[in-house]
Amino acid sequence: MFRLLGGLFLGWALGANDSANVFGTAVSSRMIKYSSAVVLTALFVIVGALLQGVEGMETLSGLTVQTAETAFIASLAAAITVTLMTFLKLPISTSQAVVGAIIGIGIMKQSINTGGLIKVIICWIGTPIGGILFGILIYFLLQRICKKLALNILTSDAVLRTGLIIAGCYGAYALGANNVANVTGFYVGNLLTAKQAVLLGGISIAIGAITFSKNVMGTIGKSIVKLDAFSALVAVIAQAVTVHIYAIIGVPVSTSQAIVGAVLAIGFIKGIQTIDFIMLSKIFGAWLLTPFIGMLLSVSIYFLVHLQFIH
């Protein structure tokens, strides 16, 4: 059971980093309180994990065959990577950290499923692009509806706030459905059943969201493009739709990449000068580094763990 702690640590790290993607824009644009946001995130992450979390687990566990020991190593390596990035306030992909860690173990064991790996990498590229495309599409669609309705300030505020809460809950649901596989997917078949894995994974993500998600929220809502209430709503819906589509396909992708894509879409619409390119380059740099750090850590941990068996 000790080995399960790696997965739970990873769940906590994922909740701390990725739940910012769900309500970060709303909290930063002061549409919803941080405390309400994290409670709703926690709740819907668990629901999403329980109802649709199993599909992603099959893809992830198909990359390499994991024992309880390698699952622990992969989780721990990925969790350290994500926690490090969370301290740096950078929204990164837990999926990348996890896949990087799995590749590290695959290298040590000399067994990597390259077919599955290619599918995951294609989806990594597709996620921010999906966020951008859905961001643009949803922006113009909602813009058209709003202009047609010409709502007064009181009603439009009420609609925006309600819409953002609903979209945030949907985003949290998609996060749970898509990302729970990253957390406890390795333990399916060795320590846990699929149902136990999604429940424990969901709960650990929820705890991460409640206890340590404030840092990255500011980066998402303020640092890339300063978002108004309407743009915040668009970004959350675009992120949720993108991630949910991947959850249905069964590929665990990054909510961070989806939300950054969606926020970028707002930047493109409002004018390229609204984008903070320094922050953006930091985020892109972190995305590139994440799988490598995950891989290096898992190789190192694997090596250290096996050192004790020399004598």
Partner: peptide
């Protein structure tokens, strides 16, 4: 008391 956004409230 209303469900206004803080920014709207300040503006109004």
């Amino acid at each position: 008391e209303k469900s206004l956004l803080p920014e709207s409230r300040e503006d109004i």
